[in-house]
């Protein structure tokens, strides 16, 4: 089905990377859309965990915040926030941590803290929240972000959440046994870390050229010799996603 937007392609591609047996720690926004799309399509038994303490939640509309009542109402159980971070995340119960990013670099390090210097920032972003420990304790991390030279930069201004570190060896240096960034999903392509942990484009979304990806990336991006072509969203995927967004718009009083 060719009648889709780049944003829809991004969310659909992210949803496809999730499996029925995953236990997914979900961030708000595109990660939440992708996780719930997976749940209502090919992964009905996926366990979705939000940092507000809701475990096994099955929202019918996408939450605006990580603590909307819908998440608690439809959860298997709701635990306190200290328990969520101590037992469930730090305790190693999460298979996929799903994060967004304001800036990301070639080693999958994420900035959501400041643009400019920390003491006198040009733009003060919301900060890390759960992300620093989601990045270190989830077995794998998926990152979803729009692909532009503002987002995909040579040097991020601040490492909020560790990918592979500024030199690619940060996880080893910190003694982390978890995998770290395993997949970066953008509106143009999919990227995965190569043997030296640098991100490589492994799949191009429909209609996207390698030149376009290069122009939208702030570093000399690696592209594997024969990148795959991301399958176009199916009618079922698009219908389910649009249904989720429409239900969400109605629930949140319009103009989502």
């Amino acid at each position: 089905m060719s009648d889709h937007t780049a944003q829809e392609m991004m969310v659909v591609a992210a949803a496809r990377a999730l499996h029925n047996d995953d236990v997914c720690f979900v961030g708000i926004g595109a990660p939440s859309a992708a996780c719930n799309l997976a749940r209502v399509t090919h992964a009905p038994d996926i366990t979705l965990v939000y940092e507000s303490g809701t475990i096994g939640t099955r929202p019918t509309v996408l939450p605006l915040s990580i603590g909307d009542g819908e998440l608690c109402d439809t959860a298997l159980t709701t635990v306190s926030v200290p328990e969520m971070f101590q037992y469930w995340l730090q305790g190693g119960r999460i298979s996929i941590g799903f994060l967004g990013a304001a800036q990301i670099d070639r080693f999958g390090n994420i900035n959501t803290t400041v643009i400019g210097g920390y003491a006198a920032p040009r733009v003060r972003l919301p900060g890390g929240g759960g992300a620093p420990e989601i990045a270190s304790h989830s077995e794998k991390v998926y990152v979803i972000a729009n692909h532009s030279t503002r987002t995909m930069v040579e040097q991020i201004d601040f490492v909020t959440s560790l990918g592979f570190g500024r030199d690619g060896n940060g996880r080893r240096r910190h003694g982390l046994k978890t995998q770290g960034p395993a997949l970066v999903i953008t509106d143009l392509c999919l990227m995965e870390p190569g043997a030296d942990h640098e991100l490589e484009v492994t799949s191009l979304h429909p209609g996207v050229t390698t030149d376009r990806v290069r122009a939208a990336t702030g570093w000399d991006i690696r592209i594997v010799p024969e990148p795959a072509r991301t399958p176009t969203p199916t009618v079922d995927e698009l219908t389910a996603l649009r249904h989720l967004y429409a239900a969400t718009d109605r629930a949140h009083g319009g103009d989502a």
Binding site: E51, V81, P82, M84, F85, Q86, L89, Q90, N109, T113, Y118, G128, G129, G130, A131, P132, E133, A135, S136, H137, F158, V159, T160, S161, L162, G165, G170, R171, R173, H174, L176
Partner: peptide, 28 residues
């Protein structure tokens, strides 16, 4: 980070002077 603040409240409730966590790996 959330993990640290949640633990810091729990430590305060428990009368501990500090909270310990596996956290802040590689963050600025």
């Amino acid at each position: 980070s959330h993990a640290a603040m949640a633990s810091a409240y729990a430590a305060g409730a428990a009368g501990l002077p500090i909270a310990l966590l596996k956290g802040y790996h590689g963050t600025d």
